[in-house]
Amino acid sequence: MLDYMIYILTFAVGSILGLLYSYKQHGEPFVAVTDFNVPFAAVSTVGWVLGFNSGNVILSAIGFLLAGFVMGERPGYGRKESAVGLIIGIIVYVLLKGNGMM
């Protein structure tokens, strides 16, 4: 169970860091952002893919930290990027499992 505790802890820490970072970047009142932030989508994708598929506690923990960082951004930011990263992470997981690599 120690590995699950590490994953959930790093995800929570990543979320808090993401929230602090995005409030520093965007101080304005709530706006529903329609732009797609490619760098954050890449961070989220790397995070979710590593988190679900690395098979290594340290790499998965780093993955969940990155995934949490994007997902934890202030309301209105990071939603689409998280969705893209999560979907790609799940697709990679299913493909690897289908090929018997996990």
Partner: peptide, 29 residues
């Protein structure tokens, strides 16, 4: 694990309620 998972789930609960009511809602964390 129970504290962290429970807290994140309760945060998710608030977020979903807000989205159903067409509010942005607080972050999950």
């Amino acid at each position: 694990i129970a504290f962290l998972a429970g807290s994140l789930l309760l945060g998710l609960h608030r977020k979903i309620m807000a989205r159903v009511q067409k509010r942005p809602g607080p972050p999950i964390v």
